[in-house]
């Protein structure tokens, strides 16, 4: 009897450790899961917004003005004239020793939005729109380096999700919008949270994974023609942003990324 209890306790301890490892490890989307589930579908957001505001407003409305507003309100203003607003927007806090911020990002070039930490952002029920598209046309030219069983997954025109305008809530990141759109359009998406970069990393879309087409291949994103130097969870979208998800077979060189962050 005693023996049985001992084994039971040992089993429970092992199970607890496994659960803790699973939650703390990379496979668990911590904050933005809850944020997203509140505003799961843009089409239904009109009905949802009262409940969403009821739950989020007590903390959202006061805190927006002091802490999150510089980036958010500036971002709203920026959409028209990026360069002017960039001077007002708070810059990243760069550590003098490493020349990088707390999440390994080098200084963002002038005129581009700085990263926003997803855990600090308050999502408001202010509805904005952006366009999103998912393409893998670089694969069409590199079909022979793709595994045979994956070839059927590449559409003839290389477009997984045609460009479309979607609604999102102010404060949501490029990652939030990608997750919602892939879910709605029944496109497969696998990501992993990387605490070092404080962002989700997109491993595969539509079962096309990183390294599927050589060791320099994977998914990249581009907003208004610029490939951000930080993760998609830290890119706070503005009204009218054009987000493109593109598969690269050559570390971005074949899709026009200048690779500023590589230097």
């Amino acid at each position: 009897m005693n023996q049985k209890i001992k084994w039971g306790i040992a089993g429970a301890v092992v199970l607890c450790v496994l659960v803790v490892a699973f939650v703390w490890g990379g496979d668990f989307a911590s904050k933005d899961t809850e944020v997203l589930s509140g505003t799961s579908s843009p089409s239904a957001s009109a009905e949802i917004s009262p409940t969403a505001s009821a739950s989020a407003s007590p903390s959202a409305s006061p805190s927006v003005s002091p802490s999150a507003s510089p980036s958010a309100s500036a971002a709203a203003a920026v959409s028209a004239k990026p360069s002017a607003a960039a001077t007002e927007a708070p810059r990243q806090s760069i550590s003098p020793e490493t020349g990088k911020d707390a999440y390994q990002t080098e200084p963002v070039p002038e005129g581009q939005p700085v990263p926003v930490e997803p855990q600090e952002v308050e999502v408001t029920d202010n509805e904005l729109t952006c366009t999103i598209s998912i393409r893998c046309d670089t694969l069409l030219a590199n079909m022979d380096s793709l595994a045979p069983e994956k070839r059927a997954l590449v559409p003839a025109d290389g477009v997984l999700l045609a460009e479309r305008t979607v609604t999102f809530h102010e404060g949501e990141s490029a990652f939030n919008v990608l997750r919602r759109e892939t879910k709605q359009n029944k496109i497969h998406l696998e990501f992993v949270n990387t605490p070092v970069f404080n962002s989700a990393y997109i491993e595969g879309i539509g079962n096309l994974y990183e390294f599927d087409c050589g060791e320099l291949s994977g998914w990249m994103y581009k907003v208004n023609g610029w490939f951000p130097s930080y993760g998609c969870s830290r890119y706070a979208l503005k009204d009218g942003d054009v987000v493109e998800w593109i598969y690269t077979c050559d570390l971005g060189r074949d899709i026009g990324a200048d690779g500023g962050w590589q230097r």
């Binding site: 879910k183 029944k186 497969h188 079962n207």
Partner: peptide
């Protein structure tokens, strides 16, 4: 299925946000 999310037939979404296939 808890750690492997590959596959074209998505049944539902796991708690972590990744698909269960």
């Amino acid at each position: 299925p808890a750690f492997n999310h590959r596959g074209v037939t998505i049944l539902t979404y796991l708690w972590s946000g990744n698909p269960l296939t």
